[in-house]
Design a protein around this nucleic acid. Structure first.
Lengths: 142, 142
DNA sequence: AGGTAGTTGCAAGTGATTTGCATTTATGAT
DNA sequence: ATCATAAATGCAAATCACTTGCAACTACCT
């Protein structure tokens, strides 16, 4: 049967490339990111892996993954910080009622916009990152 | 002497319009927002008003002001959450080295962009808010 | 297999924010 | 003006998300 299958990420290689030891904890965390493919919080991960991992390890792992660029922090106005895999820069629409999240890309348009902004600025020289998050109502909740 | 003076905000009216009682604490907090005209944290406010206000009151006030729309939450990747007066929607450029913040507006372009995004979305119906924050290096630090 | 740096679990520690409760105060009605 | 009442405040304790110190463990290189 032909199935559209997302190319699996080679986490073992990813860890090695980033000079991390390959441990069960790290693989488990990465697999959660791959499986859910949405911004997830430390708390969410901890609950999924309850009994198999210590909470401190979750925080430490997320932090080191962020530092090395494997993960990216996302602020969606939740109580706790969320992360997502850092491949493929994109943004989010968040339903303020039900919490549903849709990803979207807008790289070309947004980058054009950033260029205009930086041109107008007298104080800034270079923009290295940006975040754009939209909040509103999904079709179900509207 | 003629001075270019920013039109003072009538905080007493602002409080009344939002069904808040007019108290010294609230006026003091609003005046800090007006005076510094930058995103400020609860901690910053508390330190400015040390001895004159309780920390819990600061948090409670910020929260209720946010709920009523007087303030808006801003995530600038600092340790603690920042707020700013919610008049006059704008965005920020933050220097990741020295922390310097520059405001900018981009309403027209950004709104055009938002329209395009929402048109393409099959899941979302309405965008009520958005945040766009840029991170990079100011001219001093670059 | 063995040495070692890097990882983990556990428990205690932080720092920001919240909450419960008793006291005080602003405000609208008398 | 005074009063009654709901709202606001201060204080202390609690909570919540996250961090850290340290001893035990493990992946990985030789």
């Amino acid at each position: 049967m032909l199935r559209s299958k997302k190319p699996a990420i080679d986490f073992i290689k990813l860890l090695k490339d980033n000079k991390f030891k390959n441990t069960p904890s790290r693989l488990a965390i990465l697999e959660i990111f791959a499986k859910f493919d949405k911004p997830v919080s430390a708390d969410f991960i901890y609950k999924k892996l309850k009994g198999h991992i210590n909470e401190a390890t979750v925080f430490r792992t997320l932090l080191s993954f962020e530092k090395s660029g494997i993960l990216r922090k996302v602020d969606l106005r939740k109580d706790s910080v969320c992360f997502e895999l850092n491949s493929d820069h994109h943004h989010h629409m968040v339903c303020v009622k039900c919490g549903f999240i849709e990803d979207f890309k807008g790289s070309k348009d947004i980058e054009k916009l950033l260029e205009q902004i930086i041109e107008k600025s007298t104080k800034f020289k270079k923009i290295t990152e940006h975040s754009l998050e939209l909040f509103g109502f999904c079709k179900m909740c509207n």
